[in-house]
Computed example of a mutant assay.
Amino acid sequence: MEDILRPIYQERASQANTLGVLMVEKKQKSSHTTDSFDDILLIIVKKAEKPLLIKHYTYQDKKAAMHIIVEDLLKEWILLGSNRKIFEWIDDARILFDRNEYVVNLKKELREFPFYGRKIKMGMEFAKLIRRYVDGKALFENHLYLDAYNYVVHSLHHLARLAIIENGLHPELTVWHQVKQIEPEIFKLYEELVNSEETLEKRLELLFLASEFMIHSRTKIGSTHLLDILSEKEFWSFNEIMNEKELIPYSVDMAVLLEYLIDKHLVEVVNVETKGAGIFHRCYRVNKK
């Protein structure tokens, strides 16, 4: 199989721009990991005209896909978790070419999952969790139970991912399989939401109560990254927060997260005078009391 695909990747492996070539093979008859392809060729390059180029091939009675990805996009995927398959691909892949042990070191880094990287990812998951929880609760209070149910499922998913990261692991595609081993109480919440014979209203009511405790217990670790950044200045305008490079990944969830942290007395509001009488800029700082 590798011999057949060699001409496709060999030319790229010889280029100085190429950092590594990996092959992911389908392990089962039906595999979600490889998007139903028999083989995935993953080629990591320093630079390219396009950050991602994908080509599909047919050989014998099989099919293969080649993904050429620039290093910056790969790092973004790893940081943001926006392409969860990439973790499994890199972990499971066979190394066909490796310039200066780039791929070996990348695999090692993913397995060790440095704490700094975990802090950022936990912050992002916590922000998404708070957003889904707050929006879901508002829908519930307006008796929009089906919409609330959808938000609660998403909030539990982010809670599960947060717990997995907290335990030093990367969330995979099979998050619920992972969390069942690590945090069975979160898995039980999910099961009760999906399988309970109670009315939907009652299921949601009970779940909001249980989730509130679990979220509260993870507030400190989930907000550590954001609070560390905010501690670097006396106070911040919202625009400054949104444009801070390390906080950009929080994006649309930031406003809701800040309000939640104000409610929990971890962040406080600072009113800064404007030219208009009685109108103030609403700024934010870490509550150090």
Rank of each mutant, 00 (worst) to 15 (best):
F140L: 02
I86K: 01
A65T: 13
E232D: 07
L159G: 03
D253I: 06
I165S: 10
K27A: 02
I262R: 10
E109C: 05
D72T: 12
E166W: 09
H265D: 10
Q60H: 11
R84N: 07
E259I: 04
F115D: 09
A210L: 07
L207Y: 07
E197L: 10
D92N: 13
H157V: 01
E49M: 11
I120F: 13
K55H: 10
M66G: 03
L207C: 10
H157F: 12
L146H: 14
K75Q: 08
H158E: 09
P171T: 02
H143G: 01
K63P: 01
P171E: 04
K26W: 00
D91H: 15
E198G: 06
E240Y: 14
M254V: 15
S36Q: 13
W176A: 01
P51A: 00
A138V: 15
L169F: 08
F235S: 13
G222D: 09
L162G: 08
P7M: 04
H225C: 09
W176P: 01
S82W: 03
R132Q: 14
W176C: 03
K75C: 03
M124P: 00
R203H: 04
V194H: 12
H216A: 12
R99P: 00
F235I: 06
L73C: 02
K119M: 13
A160N: 03
C283Y: 03
R94S: 10
F235H: 15
S31V: 07
T174L: 14
L129R: 10
T274M: 11
A210E: 07
E201Q: 08
L42D: 00
F213E: 14
L129H: 06
T33S: 07
Q60G: 02
L162K: 07
S14R: 15
E71R: 11
D98Q: 03
K275S: 12
E273M: 08
R94G: 08
L22V: 05
F213Y: 13
R218N: 10
K220T: 15
H170N: 14
